[in-house]
């Protein structure tokens, strides 16, 4: 398993990287999404641009009531940030189950999101948190909501000349509970189906409810059905909402789970995530 030949450039700064970006170039940071593709020759770039060591793409900092995470921050670094864990415990909880110890040491949050595996764990978390992604190119920068970023399997809003440089997390609403529930494919650890939920509560009533899925369809998505919980106490409605959120979705079919089972798992995951989130919000 040896990749095809390519040139390798370690970018010294962002503008260095922008210059090289284009159709026949690939960006590498941790490499844990890209290298397997290269080894199987499923990707055959002419040039590899290494942005993994750029200090301006690293780090976790507070911003307003929320936080900003450099795209080349490793999963390990996310786990080691006490501030991140305090504000977004869900990110820590989910990160602990991404890949494995070695993958978390090398893999980066931006790399994983830009790779856009339809069964990855982090995208639904970004969706319920209503994160935004900073995309930069030679021409300038723009911010794209996570909810408009994932376009399809391994496909995002990123243009060939753009880099995902920062993940921007808005301040979580007060009295919020978040949770993630998933069922792993036994070999890869990717989600057969997973659901992230965020619920905010005031005076015993739900004021905000977000639910997003991964692994279920060809791209992670936010389920509008969660809105039905707003203005209610939750409890009895949760099962209905979980079922409604999955109903009508064209579920993936593969050797590990057929659409019927996958949709069922998604429903269970949604119910469990919503229930836990609600419990944590109270």
């Amino acid at each position: 398993m040896i990749p095809t030949s390519f040139e390798y450039v370690r970018a010294k700064n962002l503008s260095d990287a922008f210059k090289l970006l284009g159709k026949h170039a690939k960006v590498i940071a941790g490499g844990h999404s890209l290298l397997p593709l290269l080894r199987f020759r499923l990707a055959q770039p002419d040039t590899l641009i290494d942005i993994g060591q750029l200090p301006q793409l690293k780090g976790i900092k507070k911003a307003g009531g929320g936080m900003k995470i450099g795209a080349a921050t490793t999963y390990r670094e996310l786990l080691e940030s006490k501030e991140l864990k305090a504000l977004y415990p869900l990110i820590a909880e989910v990160t602990e189950h991404i890949g494995d110890l070695q993958v978390r040491n090398a893999g980066t949050i931006g790399g994983g999101l830009a790779h856009a595996d339809p069964a990855a764990d982090m995208p639904p978390v970004m969706l319920v948190l209503d994160a935004a992604f900073l995309l930069q190119s030679k021409a300038g920068k723009r911010t794209v909501s996570a909810r408009k970023f994932f376009k399809g399997p391994f496909t995002t809003a990123l243009k060939p000349n753009e880099l995902l440089t920062e993940i921007q997390l808005p301040a979580p609403p007060k009295r919020t509970g978040m949770a993630y529930a998933s069922f792993e494919q036994a070999a890869s650890g990717y989600a057969l189906a997973g659901a992230a939920a965020l619920i905010a509560v005031a005076n015993g009533m739900i004021t905000r409810a977000e639910l997003a899925f991964t692994g279920l369809a060809d791209t992670p998505f936010l389920a509008p059905a969660a809105a039905k919980l707003v203005g209610t106490a939750g409890d009895e409605l949760i099962s209905q909402v979980a079922a409604a959120a999955v109903a009508g979705v064209e579920a993936n079919d593969d050797i590990h789970a057929n659409p019927v089972y996958r949709a069922h798992l998604a429903t269970v995951a949604a119910r469990r995530a919503l229930t836990t989130a609600l419990g944590r919000a109270r």
Partner: peptide, 21 residues
């Protein structure tokens, strides 16, 4: 994980790291 080595003190899979990296 048979290829695990430490890079800057952290375990990584050396089959998923380019030598130039």
């Amino acid at each position: 994980g048979a290829c695990t080595v430490h890079l800057d003190g952290r375990a990584v899979k050396s089959c998923t790291v380019l030598a130039v990296q």
